[in-house]
Design a protein around this nucleic acid. Structure first.
Length: 220
DNA sequence: CCAGACGTTGTT
DNA sequence: GTCTGG
DNA sequence: CCAGACGTTGTT
DNA sequence: GTCTGG
């Protein structure tokens, strides 16, 4: 799964041409938790969205159940995600790296996962709109899948990453396009060799936004 | 039919 | 234990 | 995801 | 809004 990620991306490299401009409203952070406003990119371009999809039909502006991730295997049948899926409300969420907690006897050890190339990882997502007038906002979810074997020892789930060549189709295609990305097979997007290392428990507190959390990465 | 949930993990 | 807030 | 709260009245 | 459970 992905319940925390690091560093809104400033330099998107080749992804800049695909996704468009970074939305000014979204700040950089090394410790982004559900509920935050993150940069999501639709076919219209970049927009700030709350992380945690609030369905358009929701009576309140927040859900009491977890919608910051959507399982690729089952999202099509879920009331919370089905509307977004059927309406082609797809987005892409770039990130510099993400955190995963390894469950151990007697505790949890957080890891940071990333790609050494320095280009962003780009996760497939869905978005929805809630409310009207000044109350209105957009929100999104990150699609997750089974972890690739190399990192499964940390956690059995991982974000569904989209390769550059599938990006426009993901954003613009009909609901049944790119369906293979949701399947159980390992796709090119998930063959990416992720680097990883254990990090300090300081990352557990979502209020810690210090760049020191990513020091080993920045030192490369 | 209506009422109530609508989600993910991990643990039992 | 479970919910809300970040 | 984890951390932190978890309640009410009445007074400032 | 739409699905599941009763």
């Amino acid at each position: 799964m992905c319940g925390r990620f690091a560093n809104h991306v400033q330099d998107m490299g080749r992804w800049g041409d695909i996704l468009g401009d970074w939305p000014d409203e979204v700040a950089v952070s090394y410790n982004i938790a559900p509920g935050a406003d993150i940069a999501a990119f639709t076919k219209e371009g970049g927009a700030p969205m709350r992380w945690g999809l609030v369905p358009a039909w929701s009576k309140t502006a927040s859900t009491r159940y977890a919608t910051f991730n959507a399982r690729s295997e089952s999202l099509i049948g879920k009331p919370a995600f089905r509307g977004a899926w059927n309406d082609g409300q797809r987005c892409l969420i770039p990130l510099q790296g993400y955190y995963e907690w390894q469950t151990l006897n007697g505790g949890k050890q957080p890891y940071y996962l990333f790609v050494a190339s320095g280009e962003p990882l780009v996760c497939a997502g869905l978005w929805d709109q809630w409310g009207s007038g000044p109350e209105q906002f957009q929100s999104c979810t990150m699609i997750i899948r089974a972890a690739s074997p190399a990192i499964a020892f940390i956690h059995p789930r991982m974000p569904l990453f989209v390769p550059l060549f599938n990006a426009r189709e993901w954003l613009e295609g009909k609901p049944d396009s790119c369906a293979e990305l949701l399947g159980p097979d390992v796709t090119p997007a998930n063959e990416l060799e992720l680097g990883y290392y254990p990090v300090s428990q300081q990352v557990n507190n979502p209020r810690n936004e210090g760049a020191g959390l990513c020091a080993p990465l920045l030192a490369r």
